[in-house]
Structures are given as structure tokens and as C-alpha cells.
Computed example of a mutant assay.
Amino acid sequence: MQRELKIGKYRHFKGNEYQVIDTARCSETDEEYVIYRPQHDADAELWIRPLTMFLETVERGGKVMERFEYIGD
């Protein structure tokens, strides 16, 4: 079951924080993407990542965790 995406701040499993701005849909493939901005760089550009990848879990050091963990508004 896929988690729901909330607008707000997330922490990547490697430690950096990101602000999720919104989602968008590709006109060619109909795939949904997450629009986000890194919080560790004041001049950071907007980035996109497929929603399915943003919400997936990863394994690191034998531990399964969320790729991006919601940490608040």
C-alpha cells in the first residue's frame, strides 16, 4: 500500500531536508511527479522525482526505511 504524499518538509534517508511544493503529471506518460526544493542550499533549484520513487522504501545497513520521511509543515 502506497503512502499518501503530504505537502511539507521531508528528510531524505541520507539526512538532508527538502520542502515538497506540489505534484505534477507528465503530459506524455501520465506519470505523477513530486516537485521539491532542497533546504540545505539557499540557492537551490526546484527538482522533480517520480511520486512512486519518492514514496518508496529503501534498505540501508539491513534496515528498511522510507526514502523520504515526512517531518512537518
Score class of each variant (00 low, 15 high):
residue 71 I to Y: 04
residue 11 R to F: 13
residue 29 T to K: 03
residue 31 E to L: 08
residue 47 W to G: 06
residue 7 I to C: 07
residue 27 S to G: 12
residue 71 I to D: 10
residue 8 G to E: 01
residue 58 V to F: 15
residue 42 A to Q: 03
residue 65 M to E: 15
residue 25 R to D: 13
residue 43 D to Y: 08
residue 41 D to P: 06
residue 68 F to P: 03
residue 33 Y to P: 05
residue 69 E to P: 02
residue 69 E to N: 00
residue 57 T to N: 10
residue 34 V to L: 03
residue 63 K to P: 00
residue 46 L to M: 01
residue 6 K to V: 09
residue 70 Y to R: 03
residue 53 M to D: 12
residue 27 S to C: 11
residue 30 D to P: 04
residue 19 Q to L: 14
residue 65 M to C: 13
residue 49 R to I: 12
residue 32 E to C: 08
residue 39 Q to C: 15
residue 24 A to P: 01
residue 51 L to V: 01
residue 23 T to I: 01
residue 25 R to E: 14
residue 45 E to R: 14
residue 59 E to I: 07
residue 7 I to R: 05
residue 43 D to E: 03
residue 54 F to W: 13
residue 6 K to S: 04
residue 44 A to V: 03
residue 56 E to H: 12
residue 55 L to V: 01
residue 19 Q to F: 06
residue 72 G to S: 10
residue 37 R to T: 04
residue 57 T to S: 13
residue 53 M to R: 11
residue 31 E to Y: 09
residue 32 E to R: 02
residue 14 K to V: 13
residue 64 V to S: 05
residue 37 R to N: 06
residue 16 N to T: 08
residue 16 N to V: 07
residue 59 E to H: 10
residue 27 S to I: 07
residue 16 N to L: 11
residue 67 R to C: 00
residue 39 Q to V: 15
residue 26 C to L: 05
residue 55 L to A: 02
residue 41 D to N: 11
residue 62 G to W: 00
residue 10 Y to M: 01
residue 62 G to I: 02
residue 25 R to S: 09
residue 53 M to E: 14
residue 52 T to S: 08
residue 8 G to D: 01
residue 13 F to D: 11
residue 50 P to L: 09
residue 1 M to G: 12
residue 27 S to L: 15
residue 2 Q to A: 06
residue 67 R to I: 06
residue 31 E to S: 14
residue 41 D to R: 12
residue 42 A to H: 10
residue 39 Q to L: 15
residue 36 Y to M: 06
residue 33 Y to T: 04
residue 47 W to H: 14
residue 10 Y to P: 03
residue 46 L to A: 01
